[in-house]
């Protein structure tokens, strides 16, 4: 369980996160909201990447402000959205660093097994000896996720994990998130842009707007035209297809002509 109590954050007098309180988990939770809603900032605060200005966050009972960073690294793993890595590091070397919080740079046979398992899980076995700068954006994204998996934490936080992935890999990634929850019992929190991906795979959705929490609930609750309008300031008709509630947010060319 992740608990967020009255967390606020501002930069240069601009409020980025505004008195957010929520309990997240267990299961797969998607943070949604328009650009600039504070989604990435909130995720970063949960993962102690920035110091909290006010409020309190606990992950699995550990206060992220007071708990030693190394202990937190064995409890939660985070992957940010922008990963401009220019290092010539092999994929396997990168993934092995996921074991660092557990081993401090001396991986055991057990660690190596976990690394190979993570590589296998993201289908990177054949790319394991490649350098990161030889990979496509999507392959690199998968390598970073493999590192996070190798870290083997109860809590996994991913900022837009579908970034750079094509449709096939996006679906595979969401299914991987599901197995992490359903089979490994992990709590997964992802920042998502595509509400349909989010609602199809998540147990709950947390909607932010201008830093404030505007809605938090299951997909059936959030996938509602009124609720989504309060989040995105646009009308999104909801259609039920094969038992799934899909938001058709594309608008129409006719509407553009009328406007």
């Amino acid at each position: 369980m992740i608990t967020i109590e009255n967390v606020s954050q501002s930069y240069d007098a601009e409020v980025v996160v505004d008195r957010v309180s929520a309990s997240i988990g267990p299961g797969l939770t998607s943070i949604i909201g328009p650009n600039g809603a504070g989604k990435s900032t909130l995720l970063g605060l949960i993962a102690r990447l920035q110091p909290l200005q006010s409020g309190r966050v606990t992950v699995g009972g550990l206060d992220v402000t007071t708990t030693a960073s190394k202990q937190l690294a064995r409890t939660l793993a985070i992957l940010r959205q922008e990963n401009q890595v220019s290092l010539r590091l092999r994929v396997r070397e990168l993934v092995t660093f996921g074991r660092f919080p557990h081993t401090g740079g001396h991986p055991t046979a057990h660690d190596r097994e976990l690394v190979e398992a993570a590589l296998e899980r993201l289908d990177l076995a054949s790319l394991a000896d490649r350098y990161l700068d030889q990979l496509s954006g999507g392959q690199r994204q998968r390598a970073f996720i493999a590192m996070v998996l190798a870290q083997d934490t109860d809590y996994v936080l991913l900022d837009e994990p579908l970034n750079n992935l094509d449709m096939k890999h996006s679906v595979a990634m969401m299914q991987l998130m599901r197995t992490l929850v359903d089979e490994d019992g992990k709590t997964v929190v992802v920042v998502m842009h595509d509400i349909n991906f989010a609602s199809s795979y998540s147990d709950s959705l947390l909607a932010l707007k201008r830093g404030a929490l505007v809605a938090h609930g299951g997909p059936e609750e959030i996938m509602d035209t009124e609720v989504l309008e309060s989040v995105y300031d646009m009308r999104i008709p909801i259609h039920e297809v094969d038992g799934k509630r899909l938001g058709l947010y594309f608008g129409s060319p006719q509407a553009a002509r009328q406007a």
Partner: peptide, 20 residues
């Protein structure tokens, strides 16, 4: 090394980059 080794160019930023 870079041009021969790369399998495909990096697809840049599909979703809008968000800084908050």
């Amino acid at each position: 090394g870079r041009t021969t080794a790369r399998t495909s160019p990096p697809a840049r930023a599909t979703a809008g980059g968000e800084h908050a």
